[in-house]
Structure formats: C-alpha cells, structure tokens
C-alpha cells in the first residue's frame, strides 16, 4: 500500500446550463437543465512515500479534479481514494494536517497584509509550535530568501516572490505530502530554477512525497522519475520519463531568425510555420542533428538568431494518439 492509493476513481460533473440575467438566476434556482461531463474516469495509481510524481496532461484533462479529490475539496463520484490512510473527503480536516497545497495561479496568502503576517496566521491555523515554526522559517528563509520581502504586502509581490512565499507557507506545518498545481507557471527562468531546486531539496532532505501538475516538460525532466499522463480523464501512461521521451520526444523544433525572408529548402526537416523572417523547422533528432540542420540553413540565408524547442506535452500527447498508445 502506498501513501496515496487511488482505485477506479471517477468524477462526473453536472453542469447547469447558464441562464442569462437576474430572472434567469432566480429561475435557475428552481429549474435547471444539466449536462453531464466526465472529468476523471476510472483512474487508478499508487504512490509510495518519498516519491516525486509528475501528473501531467493538457488543459481540461482532469488533473485539477484529481488533485481536488486527493485534497478533500471534491467528493468522488465513484472509486476509492486514500491519502496517508485517510479518506480525504470524509476526514478533510485531518487530511489537511498531513498535506500541503499550492495552487500556482491562486495565492493562499492574506492579500493585503505584509507577507510575514500570513506565516504567523498559518502558525495559528495549524497550531504549529514555536519551535517548529522557528525551525521551518529559518530553513525556508535561507533557501528562498523570504527576508527580502517579509514586510511587503502580498499583493505587491512579484509572481516569483509570491510563489516562493506560497510554497514556504504550504510546508510550514511539516506535511508528509505536497500537492503542487502548476508551481512554475508564469515564472522566469531563474525563478523556475530556484523553485525546482527547492522542491527537490524538500523531497530529498525531508522525504516529502510530491505530486506536481505542470505544462512544462522541463519541470518533469528535472524533478520526476515517474510521470502519470492523463488525457480526457483517463490514465494514458504511468511510468518512467525516459521511455516516453525515447519514443515520442524525438522531434525538435528549430526556430531561426533570418537576415531577410528567404524560401528555405532543407532536407530532413519540415517547415511548419513562417512569420516574416522567422521560420519554424521541425526535425527528428535521430535522423538529423541540429548542427547539420543549422548548417543547411546558413548556406541559404544569413542567420541572425536561433533557438531550439523541446516538444511540449501537448504535442507528445498528440503524437501518442497518432502512433498508438502502446508505450507501457
């Protein structure tokens, strides 16, 4: 048995058709029409204590719904879920003590107050002892440099600062499990890296089990040995990252800015987009190297600037559909 066990978990939403205006709102109190939408369908997985797992999929795949069921916010329609031996929706408050949650786009902190005050309030909310509070604050301050903005109201923090504060706040009560919903979304490269380092450190040094949802493949590559890929509510893949990347992650996109707009004739690559002087070329790295491709281009035109793009999770999933799902 793992620290998190999910068995045949499903969640259906009944979405009311919206009716317009004040009268519509009143009428919808008495009579509503519903559409059933399956957000999560027959999902099963087990996560061991100390694991760091990437839970990924495109928008609307059911990631957030699963996280909400694991944190006790939502009650499942069918199936079982246990977190640290508890059924989250039945023992929500008890479960809340053993988990930390960060929703990347929504702060959990007190918006109008100096950042430090949110920490002090959370100390009260979770009944954290003085000793434990001081110990954690010292550690987090040192790694995340929280002292740079202790006195700044949360609403005035930059996104990077806010995320640092948010993740520190989620760990203040020493949770065994940490849920991170898009922890690096919108951050710049430096802030992303700092975030990843911190997550890794917490996992290695404190043995915290981490489940993170993300759009950014680099997060997964850097942090997770295992990933669970879901799409349209179903698990499509559960396993190591290397396997899926070897199979589907071969394509790369080279973006070049040319001196002037030129019709490119390249072999082993496909021109997928063109905007003025900027060209997008997709190639398979097993058939041609980036260096060979750049060489081909530079013969035909002067290159001002170039960059390489890794395939995004959406395109990997698209490819999985096209080429069949037999990865496991």
């Amino acid at each position: 048995m793992g620290i998190i066990d999910v068995n045949h978990l499903s969640k259906q939403y009944f979405i009311a058709k919206r009716q317009e205006g004040m009268w519509g709102a009143v009428r919808s109190l008495f009579h509503r029409e519903y559409i059933t939408k399956t957000a999560v369908e027959d999902v099963s997985f087990s996560i061991e204590a100390g694991e760091m797992v990437g839970y990924i999929g495109p928008n609307g795949a059911g990631k957030s719904t699963t996280i909400k069921m694991l944190t006790g916010i939502l009650v499942p329609s069918a199936g079982d879920v246990t977190v640290g031996g508890l059924v989250p929706y039945r023992e929500r408050q008890k479960n809340a003590r053993q988990i930390g949650v960060v929703f990347g786009q929504r702060s959990q902190l007190w918006w109008d107050l100096p950042t430090i005050e949110s920490f002090e309030l959370l100390k009260q909310v979770y009944a954290i002892s003085d000793q434990q509070y001081r110990k954690n604050m010292d550690t987090f301050t040192e790694i995340l440099r929280l002292d740079e903005f202790y006195q700044t109201p949360v609403r005035q923090l930059s996104l990077g600062q806010r995320m640092r504060a948010d993740i520190a706040a989620s760990l203040l009560h020493d949770p065994a499990i940490l849920f991170l919903d898009e922890p690096t979304i919108g951050l710049d490269v430096v802030a992303k890296e700092r975030m990843r380092t911190f997550i890794q450190e917490m996992n290695q040094e404190r043995g915290i089990t981490v489940i993170l949802t993300t759009h950014d493949m680099a997060d997964i590559e850097r942090l997770c040995k295992r990933m669970i890929l879901i799409d349209q509510g179903r698990v499509m893949y559960d396993g190591g990252l290397s396997k899926i990347r070897d199979r589907f992650g071969k394509s790369r996109i080279l973006i070049v800015d040319l001196e002037k707009d030129t019709q490119l004739q390249v072999q082993g690559a496909e021109l997928i987009r063109s905007e003025g002087n900027r060209k997008w070329l997709r190639f398979n790295r097993e058939e041609i190297t980036a260096a060979q491709l750049i060489q081909q281009v530079s013969i035909q035109a002067d290159i001002q600037d170039l960059s390489l793009e890794e395939p995004e999770i959406d395109s990997i999933i698209r490819q999985m559909y096209e080429e069949g799902l037999s990865v496991g």
Partner: peptide, 14 residues
C-alpha cells in the same frame, strides 16, 4: 468564481 474558496477547504479548520 475565482477559485479562492478552495483554500478554505484545504485547511484544518471549519
């Protein structure tokens, strides 16, 4: 609507 209500449900208080 903006999703901040969820925070009241991930804390160990009523």
């Amino acid at each position: 609507l903006n999703g901040t209500f969820d925070r009241f449900l991930v804390r160990p208080i009523h």
